[in-house]
Design a binder for these strands. Sequence first.
DNA 1: TATTGTTATACTCTATAACTATA
DNA 2: TATAGTTATAGAGTATAACAATA
Lengths: 154, 154
Amino acid sequence: MSEGLDLAAVLPQLMRLGTVLNRSHLIERAMEQVGIPLDRPGLTVLVTLRMADRPLRVGEIAARMEVVGPHVTRHLHDLERADLVRRVVDPDDQRARLVELTDAGFGAASRYLETILGWFTGAVEDWSPEDRQTFGSLLSRFVTDLQARVADLD
Amino acid sequence: MSEGLDLAAVLPQLMRLGTVLNRSHLIERAMEQVGIPLDRPGLTVLVTLRMADRPLRVGEIAARMEVVGPHVTRHLHDLERADLVRRVVDPDDQRARLVELTDAGFGAASRYLETILGWFTGAVEDWSPEDRQTFGSLLSRFVTDLQARVADLD
DNA sequence: TATTGTTATACTCTATAACTATA
DNA sequence: TATAGTTATAGAGTATAACAATA
């Protein structure tokens, strides 16, 4: 009985979280603040490369973003034109392209992530270190378990 | 020093969460399972009405969804055609329309929410009641604080 | 004159299909 | 023949602009 209650309360919170994250123009604001001239998917490609910490093939970027190849190709044009990434032929396979960040791309992605991180830090600055720590681990565990549950649906 | 570390770890978790929630077709699967013939925004309108627990004006629905009026109007057509909602003139203001769930709409929204809730319950079924409770409160607090922080940006 | 909602239109994000080039 | 990527096109989701009816 009490088991159901706290869970039913989590669902609306997740909806609220989704609304804040998706509809507050957080991403656009951060891009404007650090001077990145991209749209959301373009930024996602950039951040994907920054977090990978090594050049990625087009297909690898698509897999990490969970989108389809052509979507990535399309946004790579913008990124290349803005001199944020560079496409080089994969020496191991002439069919493939390795996409790597330029210095400007690395810097832009880093500044973007620092900005977002700063906002999140500001949101929890009144929390105790223990609560922050606890929230971090429970959130991580929740996402992992939810992913597993979703995989079970197949 | 250790303060920054756990926070930097939360950001990737939130990205992962967003990916699971947006790109696993969770919503479409739940709709299919309970036999709701809608798209995502249509379902969101339905759930918004179900959670409000009373008829809402078109403008109120738009405000809660954080979308613009015409977007709601458009999806109300589908909902009405599927006999899930009904539009009646607001007796207090002839300009306004009150949108209310039909019995079918109420039932469909309820079954949908139960399905989703069941999946989330399944994801945390191995957790201790204390951890579930803790996660629920910290998540709620996080969303509230993040909303406040975002409001500060204006 | 301001507000509620609708219609018409356009833009963003992502998918599918058809194709090129290597393997 | 299968795979990596690109180009072209289509669909879903949401916004802006112009309008109608009522306040």
